[in-house]
Design a protein around this nucleic acid. Structure first.
Lengths: 351, 351
DNA sequence: GCAAAAAATGTAACGCGTTACATCCTATTT
DNA sequence: AAATAGGATGTAACGCGTTACATTTTTTGC
């Protein structure tokens, strides 16, 4: 077996003090005589000794570790949120386990159990399909039976009423959708389509619901044939716009599930000879890096990434420390409109 | 303090057996009478008991955890490699800590110590600038003093001769550069420029060196003024092409440090009224998702992502298990040419 | 039916920090 | 100089699996 690192007992022996004293020096706790402190610290430095976090965690019941479960970091949205989570976690002196489920429920279960065994102090769930569908019920049960009472924060999802020790942080996609419609109608668009995404996933369901509700507030139509769902990526955008273009009557504005899909839509329109925004205004979501790459660049609605990350870590830590949450356990944050080139005033041509 | 989870002793008590027996059931080790096994397993299931990995790791000196340190997951290349690392790690029953340094050396040091305290079984270093520069020497010393003897694998970097317990897995960017030049010269290009990247980082240094060496094999020129370095992203591509366009004489083919930069180059050329590949052939690297989004799409040279991930995890585990490495501790993998639309035969116009 | 071998199970130490409690030492008070 | 308070340090239990070794139970062989 590999040689062991030096332990607190080794340090204590060399200093002729007890392990308790070394521990006190390590944690700046209680009183240690200055002479002793310096003596011990010197030996610690001499050996580059650092306490074993496993042993520490075993006793303190706190690992200073949190888990993050998401579908895929290769998606720009998730990667960006992750970076913010990590930044905040570092402020709380926490390290994060990142688990990519690749949208596989089995893998999600597996990682959840794994994280529980690793004694994470808390879990952040991202992009999950936690609502009323069947697999969700199953996952919620797994959480209840095998993860409770470890706290969980869900980002852009719903877990309240299902798991006791939880909180949520969301982008207000409902309000964002109203912003979107308000903007598009102000440009003169009266026919709006929706492309990409998938029912059963929060960010699609919410947007569609909002779009429907917006009908009673704004003057526009949205026919069922103008909704083509598929996936959350570029290819999904391509597929759904190709589907849409088969219709006899077409909308003049298109809201895409996200910027990746919007990019697929923009490029496909252009290569089919349409003009964007001349023939179609295309609006994306997320402010992904891709949105500045297409020509025209994509007008989009961005998530409050930094807040999304920092608040979820803050909420999680409040629960970990069992601090009162001031009744706010579910928060919804405003999304930000980013105007670029893919939307424009309705033109003669489009009518 | 939060209530403790059920422990192996609780299970043992309820079963009227010793903890050793429960442990044996958990690990399928030694012989346990079938009756006992079933009895114990039932109680384990009843309580959804799962052993505490901290305690296990404390004794076995193995945490089944590895660390990955990289600049940023928001970069597509790193995210893709990470996904592959995670897949392979899962096969080895390992969980991974992901640390993003945001290219900050301090943060890199910090995370390295953190991972050491967490007793990771091994570390994979990605995109680091480990070679002869000053900060590297400092980092290597940190590894030696505070991380050794935990094994380290570096992807697309060099650590041999600096750290004892290490291995490396690389994309053969040198050979890839020869492929690139061979391809471009075969299309008739005799003037090749190089844009993006940064000296001191392996993937830039190697490419420039290879480009230089290729001069004696292929018939082309590469003037110093045609090399404009900046960063690894879209903006870097934009900046460097704008710099290049100020030159009196211009190359007809451009090799970009990666696809993000290539995208910036392609789009900038187009918006300046040039044609790609009519006026400039642009070749990228990495096969990032962005390369299929620009118009034209970007001809690129891809990394063997899956191998990069799986071999680094395999090497790491060989070192963890102290298996002989058959003398292969540094491996270089062939990159793959992906022909798309951004390169073409040299035209009259470009001459 | 008994001895010996084999199988099953138990005991207790171990890995390594942390901390409640005990003990010892120094300084202050009278 | 003795008593006391308070500061400094030590002792040992604890958290929870694992495993070497010891002990008990069962099986095998004759």
């Amino acid at each position: 077996m590999r040689r062991n690192k030096v332990s607190i007992r080794d340090i204590a022996r060399e200093c002729n003090v007890s392990v308790a004293t070394v521990s006190r020096v390590l944690n700046n706790s209680d009183a240690v005589k200055e002479d002793t402190r310096i003596l011990v610290q010197n030996v610690i430095d001499k050996y580059n000794y650092r306490p074993n976090e496993l042993a520490r965690g075993l006793y303190t019941q706190r690992t200073k570790t949190i888990g993050v479960i998401m579908p895929e970091v290769t998606s720009h949205f998730f990667a960006k949120v992750f970076i913010e989570i990590e930044k905040s976690a570092t402020e709380y002196e926490q390290t994060v386990f990142l688990c990519n489920t690749l949208s596989d429920n089995k893998l999600q279960d597996f990682y959840t159990l794994r994280l529980s065994e690793k004694q994470v102090d808390g879990l952040i769930l991202l992009g999950g399909r936690v609502n009323e569908t069947k697999t969700d019920v199953q996952y919620v049960n797994l959480l209840k039976n095998n993860f409770y009472p470890t706290p969980v924060v869900i980002i852009n999802g719903k877990l309240e009423n299902y798991y006791d020790n939880c909180a949520s942080v969301s982008s207000d996609e409902h309000e964002a959708m109203f912003q979107a419609v308000s903007y598009l109608t102000s440009l003169g668009h009266k026919k709006i389509g929706f492309l990409g995404g998938q029912r059963g996933i929060m960010s699609t369901d919410i947007k569609l619901k909002a779009l429907d509700e917006a009908k009673s507030v704004f003057d526009f139509t949205m026919k069922d044939e103008w909704i083509k769902l598929s996936t959350y990526n570029y290819q999904g955008g391509v597929q759904s716009i190709l589907e849409l273009l088969k219709e006899k009557e077409l909308p003049t504005a298109i809201i895409a599930i996200n910027d990746e899909a919007a990019a697929g839509i923009v490029n496909t329109c252009i290569s089919k000879g349409y003009s964007v925004p001349g023939d179609f205004s295309v609006l994306g979501f997320d402010d992904s890096s891709i949105s500045t790459i297409t020509m025209p660049s994509i007008t989009t609605i961005s998530h409050p990434y930094e807040k999304l990350g920092s608040l979820s870590v803050e909420f999680l830590n409040n629960m970990i420390d069992e601090k009162p949450m001031k009744d706010v356990t579910n928060i919804s944050l405003k999304m930000n409109f980013v105007e670029r080139g893919s939307c424009g005033k309705i033109t003669e041509a489009a009518l």
